[in-house]
Write a protein that binds this DNA or RNA. Structure first.
Lengths: 229, 229
DNA sequence: CGTAGTAACTGACCGTAAGTCATTTATTGA
DNA sequence: TCAATAAATGACTTACGGTCAGTTACTACG
């Protein structure tokens, strides 16, 4: 019965094609301005078919967003899988997040929507569940690494690993949204380069969660890094 | 010619009534779900009249948001106007922001929309300008105070005042959005109280921007505060 | 083959809501 | 009292998300 399987594959393929079309339109126009009719046209399908594969425009939006989350998760996981010292891995995680933001700004922008409580109600429970899982996958990398840092006495033990994770994450994320939205305004009106502020914030925040031992090790890492380059 | 003036007042009054009606509906339903028809009904006016006073639903939304911004600006300004030491004022600013978030969550939630670059395009330039001014007003309090801190050698001079401002602001804001959206999730899945994390982050971030001198003064302030309570 | 049965697809249609505008109503000043 | 102006109205247009009866394409079986 290879036919069933072929059909399954084709269906999956069509789902991907639809996401690709949706991505193109959403990237260009954003959730509000994009129309399902246009997505259908780009996908060379009728609107009805789109709705056969995705229950709502919002579901489709999140399906695109999930592609972005997957990219980020893979970046994180490949860093965590490496054999460098914990602190170096953590620094790299921060750098990777910023790199993701710069390279995949359009995906990054989509992440906001899932954070909007109002948005959740317009989405099928299944898609909500998928997004939730995807989120957890990303967080897991960060939290596991921080836990290792705590266990080794490098990160302040009065912090729980998820606490430290959400601290670091938040301080970066908010600045990135700001960079995305009003980078020029800050440059012109205040003479401030927000990307620079992001770097400084990352460093300050990171050092703030380290123990004395962690700080010493971090200093040493910085030196050996600067020797290399 | 008191009639002209009376008419002017009445027009302004009507604008306020419309905002009040809009606020009620937006607070209940959010931007997406709220309809202009419903706002008109609550305001006991026809839809056409609403559009006489505000060019679009989005403009109306921002007009409501501005009320929130004004509340926040006044809270900040009354702290800055006080005669306490700079560092204490800064701490109070942070506390005030969190208090605003807790008391006026609905307004706070609206702030997000103005940060969305996609949203700006759907709004009249005049309203954009109003929002921009309102934003500046809030930032001014914080930046001025930080500048004073820098001048007095309490805050690291390698930071410019607006840089420090956006650092502090961002690290709090992002956590507040998270608290608003998924506080329970974090409590249940990780056993983490995000409000607690917010407090810790505020403290860490604040200490991270202080000089040695600033830190000493801050410690002393904490002691005299704890004596009082 | 032919044909019954099923799965995939279509696009005309529906309901809703943003925004408009010709018309009506209220107010003013002579 | 009445013309002129300002304020308010709500029926109408347009646009878009979502649906579903009908069509097409494919499969399996006689």
């Amino acid at each position: 019965m290879g036919i069933q399987e072929r059909k399954e594959r084709e269906k999956e393929h069509r789902r991907e094609e639809i996401i690709t079309a949706a991505q193109k339109v959403f990237f260009e126009k954003g959730l509000q301005t994009a129309t399902v009719d246009e997505i259908a046209e780009v996908a060379e399908l009728s609107k009805g078919t789109i709705y056969l594969y995705y229950k709502s425009k919002e579901d489709l939006y999140l399906a695109v967003m999930l592609r972005g989350k997957d990219i980020l998760a893979e970046m994180f996981e490949s860093i965590v899988a490496g054999s460098e010292p914990v602190l170096l891995k953590l620094v790299k995680l921060g750098e990777a997040y910023q790199e993701f933001f710069k390279k995949h700004t359009k995906y990054f922008r989509m992440f906001r929507f899932f954070e909007n409580p109002q948005f959740h109600t317009q989405v099928t429970p299944e898609m909500n569940e998928l997004c939730s899982q995807s989120n957890q996958r990303v967080w897991k990398s960060v939290i596991d690494l921080l836990q290792e840092g705590i266990d080794r006495g490098l990160i302040k033990s009065e912090l729980k690993a998820p606490e430290a994770a959400v601290m670091l994450w938040s301080s970066s994320t908010s600045l990135m949204y700001r960079i995305d939205a009003e980078c020029d305004r800050w440059k012109n009106m205040m003479g401030i380069d927000l990307e620079d502020v992001l770097l400084k914030t990352r460093r300050l925040m990171f050092e703030a969660i380290l123990t004395q031992k962690g700080l010493r090790e971090y200093q040493m890492l910085l030196q050996s890094e600067s020797l290399q380059s």
